[in-house]
Computed example of a mutant assay.
Amino acid sequence: MATVFGEVAGSYDEARPGYPPAVAEAILAYHREVPRRLVEVGAGTGLATALLAGLGAPVTCVEPDPRMAAVLAARHPEVEVVVAPFEEWTPPPGGVPALACAMAWHWLDPATRCRRAHDALAPGGTLAVLAHRYDYVDPAQGAALRAAFESVDPDRRTDPREGWFGEEIAASGLFVDVRTESLRRPVPLTTAAYQRLVSTFSPQLRRPPELRERVLAAVGAAVDGFGGTVTLDLRTTLVLARRPR
């Protein structure tokens, strides 16, 4: 499933919301200086790459899907792009000063991701893992949209706990100074923009084409019923941790 998003590589970057500048500020403050190099795992089309490159460090992006990697390389020619799963990527001798993963930690092998991240880092290196959680500012809009989804596809999917990856990283015992920061912002979307966003979600990409169209029609009708705009309550969790020296 880590390569399912290549199907929508062309629209992924436009449809998905990016990251607030405070994320980069928090990483820089935690690391205490501009990293000599930063590696981004599961970089996709580069939504977080632009923010991370702004730190001023040379960036290497590791992305398993060649379709996503092609979009990433075209949009961010300033970064090095390695087309490989994280599990097959070999870090440089001595490790890297900083390793980041945005919206992709759950796609990495759960049995090895903490150990691989630890081993990829230089002693004292910084791990930064971040993810969005999508909700709705107006509970009535949220209830109506959930009902719209379920009216077409009653197979309900339960999201993991918010910030679960921070608990996992801390529990691994491989890192020290584990910190979690939460950022929250409203994101208004038109009907068409919301449908584009839904089209990039993995549950939607798992559905057969006919069911995808029915889902988009149902959620589009729901947003039209609000006057053509839905406001997301976008919550971003950033977990920072350090490999012991």
Rank of each mutant, 00 (worst) to 15 (best):
P92F: 07
V137E: 11
E80Y: 03
W105P: 01
R116C: 06
E78G: 13
R116T: 14
R157D: 08
R116A: 13
L121A: 12
A117P: 03
A144G: 02
Y136H: 15
R67P: 00
Q141T: 08
F165L: 04
R146I: 02
G94D: 12
S151F: 02
R146Q: 14
C114A: 15
L130Y: 09
A148H: 07
R133A: 11
A117K: 06
P110G: 11
A84K: 01
E162Y: 12
E78V: 14
W107D: 04
R115M: 05
R67T: 12
T112M: 03
P93V: 13
G163V: 15
A140I: 08
H118L: 12
H106R: 10
F165M: 12
V96Y: 02
A102L: 10
D119C: 10
A128C: 08
P154Q: 05
A84M: 06
E80L: 14
M68N: 08
A144W: 02
A143W: 00
H118T: 04
R75D: 03
V79F: 07
G142N: 09
V129L: 12
D153A: 14
R116V: 13
Q141Y: 01
T112K: 03
H132G: 04
Y136Q: 08
H76C: 08
L127Y: 04
Y134K: 05
V137D: 00
R75G: 15
A128F: 09
G94E: 05
A143F: 01
P77K: 06
R67V: 13
E162Q: 14
P139N: 05
G94R: 09
E78Q: 15
R146H: 13
V137M: 10
C101W: 01
P123G: 11
P66N: 10
D65T: 12
H118R: 13
D135S: 15
V96G: 06
A144N: 02
L127N: 00
W89I: 14
A131G: 14
A147L: 08
L108V: 09
P139L: 05
Y134L: 15
T126G: 03
T126L: 08
R133P: 00
C101Y: 04
A100W: 02
V129W: 02
L108M: 15
Y136M: 07
A120Y: 03
W105L: 01
A131K: 00
R156W: 03
L99R: 04
